[in-house]
Amino acid sequence: MPFDFPVLENPENTFEWMAFLASKYFGMFIEGTINTLYIAVVGTVLGFVLGFAIGIIQDLDMSADDLPIVKALIKTLKLVTSAYVELFRNTPMIVQAMIVYYGLRQADVAITPVAAGILVTLLNTGAYMAETVRGGIGSIDIGQREGALSMGMSPMKTMVYVVLPQAFANIIPEMANTFLTNLKMTSVLNVIAVQELFMAAKTVGGNYYKYFESYLVIAVIYFVLCFAFNRLFLIGERHLKDTDDYALAVEYLEND
């Protein structure tokens, strides 16, 4: 990438080396940052969707009238999703990355490293989120569900209108946490040749045998990204908090 950047000549100390590497390989670090962000955001969001779907499946209740085929389907779904959650929670992401990427490659699936990275991130996130969602659903007292059911709401509507909105609000901090973890965990994807930040630092460091300085550069980038996102989430959370006040509907006050 042709970047017209003033490159520092003859760096001497650590900071000068960092500045030198950062400016000389500006394009590479930017590409790494973009890929890191891209994989983390897309992987996390898709992982959330998967996690919610599994959390809801795990919560499904079979009623006596369901057709045998529906019952079998629910049972199978529960079994498959539990197995998936266990598999991905009990193996390291770096190993998952290798298996998914090389496994797909061996099966002649032409998957790019970035796509494989997203896939691994989303599968990993989904497994953890499934448990978080299950916990979030469990945190809503059963009484509220019974209140909805007792008036004729179907179990699905009860889930959608009563349980999930509250469960969602309760697990927002955990979701923010998961995203920040993912932002950092994308670094392991260098093992399948994803051009993310870690890969950039490895390449740059190798060119000058300046690994310490090179990794310091990406440490700063990771820190700034995570810090900024964390602040953003905190602001968002504060925004969502209920106020303690409510307006009395004076038009309905009785004047007698």
Binding site: G143, Q144, E146, G147, A148, S150, V162, P165, Q166
Partner: peptide
């Protein structure tokens, strides 16, 4: 219900 069971959200 005894415990009201209003939707708290």
């Amino acid at each position: 219900f005894q415990s009201f069971n209003l939707f708290s959200n």
